[in-house]
Amino acid sequence: MKVIHTDICPVCGDSELLPYLSCKDYLTTQEVFDICKCSKCGFALTQDFPSENEIGKYYEASAYVSHSDTHKGIINTLYHLVRKIALKSKAKTVIQYAPKKAGMLLDVGSGTGYFLNKMKSKKWIVTGIEKSEQARLYTKQKFDINCQDSGYLYDIPCQTKDVVTMWHVLEHLERLNSVMDRLYGLLKDDGTVVIALPNKESFDAAHYKKYWAAYDVPRHLWHFSPSDFEHLAKRHHFEIVAVKPMYFDAFYISMLSEKNKGTFFASLAGLAKGSLFFLRTLNNKKRSSSLIYILKKK
C-alpha cells in the first residue's frame, strides 16, 4: 500500500516532527497509526497515512454515518436527533456571516446532502462536492440535488462563490495547502468560508488522549488547535473573523471515545463525561470538542 510520509510541517514549514501519539483505527482495520507533532508550531498530523487512491477501504463501514446515513445503534441514533438542531445552527451561522441573504454556496464534503437541502430551502443556489458515490446517489434520490466528485473543486471558475462550507472535511484532505489556495481562488472578494474542525486542545481530547475518537486515524490526516488553524489561514491570506463552538460534539465524541476504550455502557458514560466537558466549555469556548472558523479574504 502506498503511504504518504510527511517530512515538513504543512502549516509552518519546520522539518522537526516529533512522535506524539499512537492511535488505533477503531472503525475498520484495527491498525495502529502514529501521530507526529511539529516542534515549532505544535500542529499534529497522521504519519504514513494511505494515499488518496488507497484510503477508500478505511471509509467502508456501515458505522461511517456521514456516508451511509445509518441509524444503527444508540450513538448513531443520537447523531440523527441532534442533526436537526445542528442544521438550523449551521444555516444560521452561514447566513449571519454571508455577504448576502442568498447566493451561490459550495459545500465541500457534502455527505448525504442534508445541509445542502437546508440551504436550498432558504433559496441558496447550492453545489455539493462529495467523494463517496454512495453518498452522492443518496443525495440525488432523497433531495434531488446533484453532487460532484472531488475533482470538480478544481473545475469551478474563480471568484464565483459567495460562501464555501466544509463541515469536518478539511482534516480528511491530503492536499491541505492546495485546497486552501483553491478556496481563496474560487471565493468572491466579499465571500465567506466556514470550516468546522475537531479541536485537539479540547477538554475531551486532553482526557481521552489516544482513545479520542476525533483523531479517527487514518481518515483524519491533520489535527488542529485554534492557533494551528490561525497560522494556516494567515498563510493563505485569510482572516479569521469569528470562532464558534460546536457544543454537541462533546457528547457524540465522548460516546465514541468511551466505546474505543471498551467501557461498559459506553454511551451512558460518554453522555455523562460529555456533559462535564460541555459545562467546562461554557467558560472556555476554545476548549470545545469542535470549532467553527469563519474566514474572510484579507
Rank of each mutant, 00 (worst) to 15 (best):
7 D>A: 12
10 P>E: 08
12 C>E: 07
14 D>W: 14
16 E>C: 05
22 S>Q: 12
27 L>Y: 15
29 T>C: 00
30 Q>P: 01
31 E>D: 15
34 D>I: 03
35 I>P: 07
36 C>D: 14
39 S>R: 15
40 K>N: 10
45 L>R: 08
51 S>C: 12
54 E>Q: 09
66 S>I: 08
69 D>S: 13
69 D>N: 15
69 D>Y: 14
71 H>G: 01
72 K>P: 00
75 I>D: 00
76 N>R: 12
80 H>R: 05
81 L>G: 06
81 L>H: 09
87 L>S: 07
94 V>S: 06
106 L>R: 13
106 L>F: 13
107 D>M: 08
111 G>M: 06
111 G>T: 06
113 G>H: 15
123 K>Q: 11
134 Q>T: 09
135 A>P: 04
136 R>D: 01
137 L>D: 04
142 K>L: 02
144 D>I: 05
161 K>W: 10
163 V>L: 03
165 T>L: 02
166 M>H: 10
169 V>S: 10
172 H>F: 02
174 E>K: 13
192 T>A: 12
192 T>D: 05
198 P>Y: 10
198 P>N: 08
202 S>G: 00
203 F>P: 00
207 H>Y: 15
207 H>V: 14
208 Y>I: 15
216 D>E: 03
228 D>L: 05
229 F>Q: 03
239 E>I: 14
239 E>A: 13
244 K>M: 05
260 N>H: 15
272 A>G: 05
273 K>D: 08
282 L>N: 01
283 N>V: 02
289 S>M: 04
295 L>V: 00
297 K>D: 04
297 K>C: 11
297 K>G: 04
